[in-house]
Amino acid sequence: MPELPEVEVSRMGITPHLVGHVITKLTFRTSKLRWDIPNELKLLQGQTITGVYRRAKYLLIETDVGSAMVHLGMSGSLRVLDSTHPPAKHDHVDMQLDSGKVLRYNDPRRFGAWLWCEQGTEHELLVNIGPEPLTDAFNVQYMHDKANGKRVAIKQFIMDNKIVVGVGNIYANESLFTAGISPLRAAGKLSESEWEKLVSEIKQVLNTAIEQGGTTLKDFAQADGKPGYFAQELKIYGKAKQPCPNCGEKIQEQKIGQRNTFFCSSCQS
């Protein structure tokens, strides 16, 4: 499933091709992805794209009348192609531009979404979610206060979108490892100095992933069709029973909150 870095890389990839261009036509080859595709999206036809933004794992393609809010789901991807390029299987949405290009959405599993957000409003899915992890609002004091008295495992805590958005399973594993914190620890038991380390590592791991183009895991590739390269940099995720890169002990695997969790019991305490 694309995580925050993959979505951000998609945003960076498509933005130069979209901003300032007019949406000449929207084509939907299905009426439903994860949810029904709203008819209001047709209002975007004839509108100029003023910006492409990301909130959590949603992309917002903004115009003066409203925005298309896109979620890649489990297997979705976006490509910018010549409009003459024939659609392939699972190409469900085309946003045709006055440049002769088309933004094409492909989603084999149909767990993604195309939704409508009226100008000046906030979509209900974006209400009551936490701060972006790469902003100043995500800081030591905020997380220390939020975690106060919480018994939930720290890995589940940092993956809760109501606390902070976009710290998905891959990067939660990696950040906890580089911070030297066990994913099994109760969130409320972390000291302020440990929060300082973890917040810093979350920002570093996500920034590194974005710089290197997102992970190559499963179905993700960048807007130009080139895969990301961060997967080769993963230190612990998916490496159960392999030697820890720090101490050589075998990496352990355990389910936490229904998600595969990888850690070194020697390096993470």
Rank of each mutant, 00 (worst) to 15 (best):
E211W: 10
Y142K: 08
H144Y: 13
A186M: 06
A137H: 13
I154N: 00
I210Y: 02
G149D: 11
F230R: 12
A153D: 09
K235C: 07
Q141D: 15
V165Q: 00
E174D: 14
K241C: 12
G225E: 03
F177H: 05
I129Q: 09
L206R: 08
V127E: 11
V167Q: 06
Q252H: 15
A209I: 03
K146F: 09
M143E: 04
I251M: 07
I170F: 06
G214K: 00
N161H: 11
L190D: 01
P183K: 04
T178H: 13
V127R: 12
G248N: 09
G238A: 11
I163N: 03
Y237Q: 09
L126E: 01
I129V: 11
R151M: 08
N207L: 15
F220L: 05
A221N: 04
Y142D: 04
I158N: 00
I154G: 02
K241S: 15
G130K: 01
V199T: 09
K189S: 14
M159V: 06
I163M: 06
P131C: 11
D145I: 05
D219G: 12
V165L: 06
M159L: 09
N148C: 11
G130H: 01
T216L: 13
E192K: 14
A186S: 12
M143V: 10
I181V: 11
T178I: 13
D136N: 15
L184Q: 13
T215S: 15
N148T: 10
I154V: 14
P227M: 09
L198D: 00
G213K: 00
A221S: 11
V167G: 02
G225I: 07
N169H: 12
G238F: 08
Q232T: 14
K241F: 15
A153F: 08
E211M: 11
L126N: 02
D136H: 12
G228T: 03
R185H: 06
L198A: 08
V140W: 07
D136P: 02
L217N: 10
E211Q: 15
V152K: 06
A153Y: 03
E132Y: 10
E253C: 11
D219Y: 10
A209K: 01
G166E: 03
K226Y: 10
K146Y: 06
V165E: 00
E194T: 05
L126K: 04
